[in-house]
Design a protein around this nucleic acid. Sequence first.
DNA 1: ACTTGCATTAGAGCACACTCTAAATGATAA
DNA 2: TTATCATTTAGAGTGTGCTCTAATGCAAGT
Lengths: 121, 121
Amino acid sequence: MTIQEVSEKTGLSKHTLRYYEKIGLIDTVKKSKSNYRIYNQNDLNRLEFICNMREAGMGISKLKEYIQLTSQGENTVEERRGILLENKKKIQEEIKLLEKSMNYIEYKIENYDSIIKNKKI
Amino acid sequence: MTIQEVSEKTGLSKHTLRYYEKIGLIDTVKKSKSNYRIYNQNDLNRLEFICNMREAGMGISKLKEYIQLTSQGENTVEERRGILLENKKKIQEEIKLLEKSMNYIEYKIENYDSIIKNKKI
DNA sequence: ACTTGCATTAGAGCACACTCTAAATGATAA
DNA sequence: TTATCATTTAGAGTGTGCTCTAATGCAAGT
């Protein structure tokens, strides 16, 4: 798969794909004879995981740490689980905060609604 | 109220308080004889609103736009309502995304749980 | 062969939202 | 009074995560 195709599939820009490789978030991708990147299924799986965790709000350095643990094999399973659990808690708090914000904004909107209503009467 | 007190009350750093003033997110704060900032209730209300909206994920430039509308009086009510509604939708989508991420991470954690269990047996 | 379009690299630049520094002055307590 | 602490300013610096540029080269169609 070419970088173009992977970009379309993942939604990551070609720049970002190269950037992730440069900072070691994904391994060095194999190259064609003419020095073009050819992504394999492994690369795609990794990228999918990365996208998921980025959406989950995990920072790049934490993600890199996690990925390095993965490559160290089975004896890092507990530590990896810990990282995920930590992240899960972070998301839960984030959701709570956003829900609080929602209430605040909804209250403000209702306020405006009654102001607008009164203006029309 | 001094900048120190306001900082403690709002959770914003003193640097940030001066920064918000510099970029026009709050009006110029009155100064004491010795050129120290003295915040009044109005300033505090504004800051509380700002904190709420920042938590809600509104960017600083949007927030500034909104605040400028507010100072233009009653005939911008509809537009302000529009901005809030837009932001509300943004938050809803953000929450949905985070919930999706949660599921993904929970799935991963359960996976690890069964791996860890098998290791112990 | 020529043009168009895709790829490569190192490294610079950008957007956001702070955060910190340095130098100076004012306030407070022993 | 002297030491210590808080505040002021303009402006520089930081961290995160991209995003873009310039120079160069390969590839495919006409």
